[in-house]
Every structure is written in structure tokens, then in C-alpha cells.
Simulated scan of single mutants.
Amino acid sequence: MSVSLAKVATEFLDRPGLAPSTVRSYESTLLPVLKQYGRWPIELLDRESIGEYLNDRKNLSYTTHHRHQAILQALFNFAVEQGYIRVNPLAGLRRRKPNPEKGEHQSDQTIHYLTTEQLTVLYQQLRSDNRLYTLVKLLHCSGARISEVLALDESDMDWGSQKFQVLGKGNKQRWCFYNDEAAQLLEKYRKYYRFSGHSALFTAKQPMSGHVTRLSYSTAYHRWRTLTNQNPLLRGLRLHDLRHTFATERVGLMGIEELRALMGHEKIETTLRYQKVTSERAKYIAKKAFQKL
């Protein structure tokens, strides 16, 4: 008896033990493919059709594209486990390569981190926007990706232990931790600046309808770009650079395996890149010291 892709996806999302943030992430990724292929019997979906679907997602960054492919592979692995299909049509499918013309680099080879001076200026610049200030502080002190934090609900937060769980690359869950300063900012933000009426931790209100929604990346990025472009020292910085800053600040303060776990890196080589960055940073600080002397 044929089973539709939509039915398999429903069972996949209804599995016990999935965190709410994980389910939301899966749902948002699977919705476009279900609109296109949801009624198809899953055994008719071959490598060519799914590969063509993935190739059409040209608006996605290569890292987001990898995430979409990984979730689809997990879905088809589930279908194999349940006996709906014999083999996963996406097994061994190559991932899309980064496009340097779009500023994409394999495994974030170009590591940009904020200097102490830039961080000081950044937080001064953001004081006029409490929501963005809190979001940036949480990204900076936790090392989480912007997509992971924006997917959080208030209920996902362990307020007592000052931590939260996210679904990272490779569909792996990990804990992220934040400090007392971020905890105080979050408390103030939730009490005075967060829009109620939605489960999301970071919310937004539509100016015309007044409808409360989850804060989108485009809204956060636009506000970030508006404020950082006002200062030459911050111009061109990315929200993702806060994650690089987190790692760079912690190299040498903890074991490389511990840092790898906090960052959610699949390969230790990815984490080791920050040791080189730290050496370059030490040289920069030494030169600044000589200038002062």
C-alpha cells in the first residue's frame, strides 16, 4: 500500500522526544517540499526529483541549503526504518558548494571576530534598541547561531540554570549557556519590551495589523545593519561574527573538545581554526602595546 510523503512527514514530526524548537525547525524546512510533493507516494520520490527540488532553492545560503538537505535525508532515513521505502534516495548526495562571489566560504574559512574596541562601540551603538541589544548579548555570550536563537520559544529556556537547547547542524542538539549580564538583560526585555501574544522568545509586532509574530532574521538583520553602519568601526560586521568572537575569546581558556561541544562542530578541525585566529589576535594586541609604549 502506497504511503504519501505528507503522511511520512507527519509521523516523522510526531516522534516522541523531539524538542518543540526541533519540531518547528523541521516543519519550516519541510513545508515547501510538502507543498510540492506532499501527495506523492514516497516510493516515487527519487534522487532526481528531490535533487532538482534542492537545486531550485537558490535563495538559500549554502549553510542553510546543507541544513535543508540534512533534514530531508533524516526524513527519508526514517521512511527506510519504517519500511516505507527500501533505500534513501538522497544517500551520498553531494552538498552544494559555497559561492565565494556571494561571500560564502567553506566551513567559515574566513573568520571575522570583533575586537575589544569594536565590542565596546557596538554595545554603545545598540543601547537605543533593547531587543537587539539583548539578542546580540545572548549571541555573543552563548556562541549560538542567529537562526538557533530566533527559533527559541520562552518555554525552551531554562531560566534557573541560564541555558537553552538548540538544534544545530547535522540535526544535533546541544546546550548553550549565558552569563548573569545576559540573564539580567533578558529579564528586563521580557518585562518591558517583549510583545506578548506569541510563544517566541524574541517577538515583533506588525505596524499595520498589530499582529505579533516571531522576530524574523530579515527584521533583525535590517535593524543590525542600520545601527552598525552608523559607525565606521562596525561597518560590514555580521551577526554571525558574534559566534566567531565567542569562540576566539575562549580558545586557551578551555579544552578544544569542550569548545567543540559548545560550538556544535561536527569536525574538530573546524574548532582548531580558532587557535590560528587567536595567534593572529595575540600579534595584533602585541603591536598595539608597542604603539602605546
Rank of each mutant, 00 (worst) to 15 (best):
F290I: 11
E258F: 09
A289F: 14
R260G: 04
I256N: 02
R281Q: 12
K287I: 08
E280W: 08
A289N: 07
A289T: 10
Y274A: 00
I285S: 07
E258N: 13
T270S: 11
A286W: 03
K267D: 05
Y274Q: 01
S279R: 15
Y284T: 10
S279M: 14
E280N: 13
T270C: 01
F290T: 08
E258I: 08
T270Q: 07
M263G: 03
R260D: 07
T271N: 00
K283S: 15
K288H: 07
M263H: 06
M263T: 03
L272I: 05
Q291A: 07
A289E: 07
E258M: 12
E258D: 14
R273M: 07
E257W: 09
L272W: 07
T271G: 00
Q291C: 04
H265Y: 04
E266W: 03
V277F: 02
M263W: 02
A289S: 05
R260K: 15
R281K: 13
E257F: 12
V277K: 01
G255W: 04
E258G: 11
A286Q: 06
F290A: 09
E280P: 02
K276E: 14
K276A: 11
G264A: 06
R273P: 03
L262W: 05
K287M: 12
F290D: 05
T271M: 00
A282C: 06
L259P: 00
S279G: 13
Y274T: 00
K288F: 03
R260A: 10
E266C: 04
T278M: 14
S279T: 13
Y274D: 00
A286G: 02
K276M: 12
R281A: 11
Q291K: 13
T271H: 00
F290W: 06
A282K: 14
L262H: 03
Y274L: 03
A282S: 09
E266S: 14
Y274R: 01
S279Q: 15
R273W: 05
A286N: 03
E269L: 07
I285N: 10
K267T: 03
Y284K: 10
K267H: 12
A289W: 14
K267P: 01
